[in-house]
C-alpha cells in the first residue's frame, strides 16, 4: 500500500475514526530529467540570493508576499500558527447526494484507511463504510494538508472510504461569459441528434480506454535508444463546419446503423481528399476492413496510397 500522506481522524458527530490518507491515483507518466548536453550529467537546481550572488541553503529561505507593493516576509512557524484548530481532523459538516455534486469541483482522489489495527478503530471505520455505502451519499468536510486547506467529499468506493479533494466555489469560474449563441435547434434536429447519441451509447467501461500517448512515448524512447529515425506524424486537418446539420445527422445515423465508421462520407468510395481528412487510427481501421497487408507498419501517407489504389 502507498505511503500515507496525512494522518489524523475523521470526525462524525462525536465519533472519531483515526485514519490515514493514501493516494488513489497513480502517476504512470514518463518523467524526464534535465541533463547537461555536453556530458549527459544531471542538472541540479541551486538556490542563490540575488543580492549577495551566493548559494543559500533551504534553512535560510523565508516566504515573501507582495502586499500591494510591500514585501511581507513570513516564516514557516508563523504560517503554522494560523492553521485552523483541529488541523488533524476531517470534520464531517454535512451529508449530500453524491449525484448533486457537479464534477467540476472534484480534484484529487485519495483513500482513507484505518490508522492502526486497534479493534475500536477498525469497528468505527467499518461502521462508516456500512452506513455510508448503502446511502449513495457523500460527507463533506474540510481539512488541512501541508499548507493548504481542502474541502473534501468522503464516500464509499470498493468497500473503503474514499476522499476526493474539491475546489472551493470561488476557484470555479463563472460560465456566463463563455460564448454559446446559435439559433434554438428545431425539435426534429434535437430528436435526430438524441437518436444518434443513443445509437452510439454504451456503458462507461474505463478499461476500454488505454493511454495511447504513454504507449507512443514509450515507443519513441525505445526508437531513440535503438537509434531509429523518429518522424513526427502529420496532424489531422481541421474539418470545416458542417453546412447542413440535418443531412449530416442522417448520414451519420445511417453509418452507425450499417456498422460503417461513423465519419464515412455518404459518397465515399476511397476518394483521396476524403481519406486525407481522416486520422491514422481511422485509416488503420479502413485498411483492416480492406484487408491491406502490412498496414500496421505503414505511415499515414502509405495508408492513403494503399487505400486509394484499392
Amino acid at each position: 500500500m502507498a505511503r500515507p500522506l496525512w494522518s489524523g481522524s475523521l470526525s462524525f458527530g462525536l465519533v472519531n475514526v483515526p485514519v490515514q490518507l493514501v493516494t488513489a491515483a497513480r502517476d504512470l507518466d514518463f518523467h524526464f530529467h534535465e541533463l547537461h548536453e555536453k556530458d549527459n550529467a544531471r542538472i541540479e537546481q541551486r538556490r542563490f540570493c540575488t543580492k549577495e550572488d551566493e548559494e543559500v541553503t533551504w534553512e535560510e529561505v523565508a516566504h515573501s508576499y507582495d502586499l500591494d507593493g510591500k514585501q511581507v516576509v513570513v516564516t514557516d512557524d508563523e504560517l503554522g500558527s494560523v492553521q485552523p484548530r483541529k488541523t488533524r481532523t476531517i470534520e464531517v459538516e454535512a451529508f449530500v447526494e453524491l449525484a448533486d455534486v457537479e464534477p467540476i469541483f472534484f480534484n484529487h482522489p485519495y483513500f482513507l484507511v484505518p490508522a492502526g489495527e486497534s479493534e475500536g478503530t477498525l469497528r468505527a471505520y467499518r461502521l462508516l463504510v456500512d452506513a455510508m455505502g448503502k446511502s449513495g451519499r457523500a460527507a463533506l468536510g474540510r481539512f488541512v494538508m501541508r499548507t493548504k486547506e481542502y474541502l473534501a467529499a468522503v464516500r464509499v468506493r470498493d468497500g473503503a472510504l474514499t476522499l476526493t479533494t474539491m475546489l472551493f466555489e470561488d476557484e470555479v469560474r463563472p460560465s456566463s461569459a463563455i460564448p454559446t449563441g446559435g439559433k434554438k435547434p428545431s425539435k426534429k434536429e434535437v430528436d435526430q441528434a438524441v437518436t444518434l447519441i443513443e445509437e452510439l451509447s454504451t456503458d462507461w467501461e474505463p478499461d476500454r480506454y488505454e493511454d495511447c500517448y504513454r504507449e507512443r512515448l514509450r515507443r519513441v524512447i525505445e526508437d531513440k535508444r535503438k537509434r531509429r529515425k523518429i518522424e513526427p506524424p502529420e496532424p489531422e486537418k481541421q474539418p470545416s463546419a458542417t453546412p447542413d446539420l440535418m443531412a449530416a445527422l442522417e448520414a451519420t445515423l445511417a453509418n452507425a446503423r450499417a456498422g460503417r465508421p461513423i465519419r464515412e462520407e455518404p459518397s465515399s468510395n476511397g476518394d483521396r481528399s476524403e481519406l486525407e481528412r481522416l486520422n491514422k487510427d481511422d485509416l488503420g481501421e479502413r485498411a483492416k476492413k480492406a484487408g491491406i497487408k502490412g498496414r500496421t507498419k505503414m505511415s499515414k501517407k502509405e495508408l492513403i496510397e494503399a487505400l486509394s489504389d484499392g
Binding site: C49, T50, K51, Y65, V73
Partner: peptide, 12 residues
C-alpha cells in the same frame, strides 16, 4: 509566496 533570503529579504 516568493522565496526570499531570510537574512536580507532578497529574492531567491
Amino acid at each position: 509566496f516568493h522565496e526570499v533570503h531570510l537574512r536580507d529579504g532578497a529574492q531567491i
